[in-house]
Design a protein around this nucleic acid. Structure first.
Length: 268
DNA sequence: AAGTAGATCAACCGCATCTCC
DNA sequence: GGGAGATGCGGTTGATCTACT
């Protein structure tokens, strides 16, 4: 005897979320926190499956999300991380505060991939594309040193002047970590428009708070307070978040504001 | 102004792993 | 320890938007 299925599929709505549904989900999670997603639709009065609710929350409604295109520094970071981690978008996203794996994946496929191809870099291997494209099947054991073009993350992060070679990508984890650190420092040097979250990431050892950015399952809201730092005046800035679109009434907004203020006070 | 093609991105699907019974 | 559901992840789809003809 296992558990009950996540959703019975019957009567479960699909497709784009409406403002009303968003509002219900936001209200529910603000009140109850993230517990078991399977129970969320029922408790929140949504005709959605838990999976869909989780996705909607993590990819779109989460208050700690940044909106808009990735900055140049974020893009550089994505390229660098992708060179090391491959298509592990969630791992990459965990290094970019306020960004979701879906967002990064989309951005990669629509922007970065093209950019790299334009630069003559294979977005999969991060190695320079073989010029002899007439040879569909290159040497099965190509020697990267033959091509003097630097790899993608070198061009992006080091302006192509790095001494990093393709061998580094196959080196030990420690070496990779050091390289990442080096590149991160370079990025840091070049970052001029870095926002606090980005700085937090770049300067901190690990972004502990972002490992579990909104985990109210324990009911303490401890980390929720963390995201209330200067960067997350998300509800205070309702236009950006689009709260008005959800037709919160004054009382609802007031309740949320009070909660936020209390959390801020507790933190101080 | 209308039609078409390409770009974008939210959401879904299916698989892998984790967790619970 | 094994089976089954829950959750998370990556790939893909398709609706919508934008640019171009």
């Amino acid at each position: 005897m296992g558990r009950q299925p996540c959703c019975d599929k019957l009567g479960v709505k699909k497709g784009p979320w409406t403002a009303e549904e968003d509002k219900k989900l936001i209200n529910f999670i603000l009140t109850n926190g993230q517990c078991c997603w399977r129970a969320v639709p029922k408790l929140a009065g949504l005709r959605r499956c838990g999976k869909s609710c989780r996705l909607r929350w993590t990819n779109y409604l989460r208050p700690d999300l940044k909106r808009g295109l990735l900055t140049e520094s974020e893009e550089q970071l994505v390229i660098d991380l992708h060179a090391r981690l491959g298509n592990r978008w969630s791992k990459i996203a965990s290094r970019l505060p306020g960004r979701t794996d879906n967002e990064i994946k989309n951005h990669w496929n629509t922007h970065i991939k093209k950019k790299l191809l334009k630069m003559g870099i294979d977005p999969v291997t991060h190695e320079p594309l073989q010029k002899e494209t007439n040879e569909e099947k290159p040497d099965p054991s190509p020697e990267p040193e033959k091509n003097n073009q630097p790899a993608a993350h070198e061009i992006i992060t080091n302006g192509g002047s790095s001494s990093t070679t393709s061998e580094d990508q196959n080196s030990s984890t420690d070496e990779s970590s050091n390289l990442l650190l080096d590149n991160t420092n370079i990025i840091l040097d070049n970052v001029t428009d870095c926002d606090p979250l980005m700085m937090n990431y770049l300067l901190g050892d690990e972004l502990a708070a972002w490992d579990d950015p909104f985990p109210i399952s324990g009911g303490t809201g401890q980390n929720f307070e963390n995201i209330l730092d200067d960067t997350c005046s998300w509800l205070m800035d309702c236009q950006d978040f689009g709260v008005h679109d959800y037709s919160f009434n004054d009382v609802e907004i007031s309740n949320v504001m009070n909660s936020l203020e209390m959390a801020v006070e507790n933190k101080q």
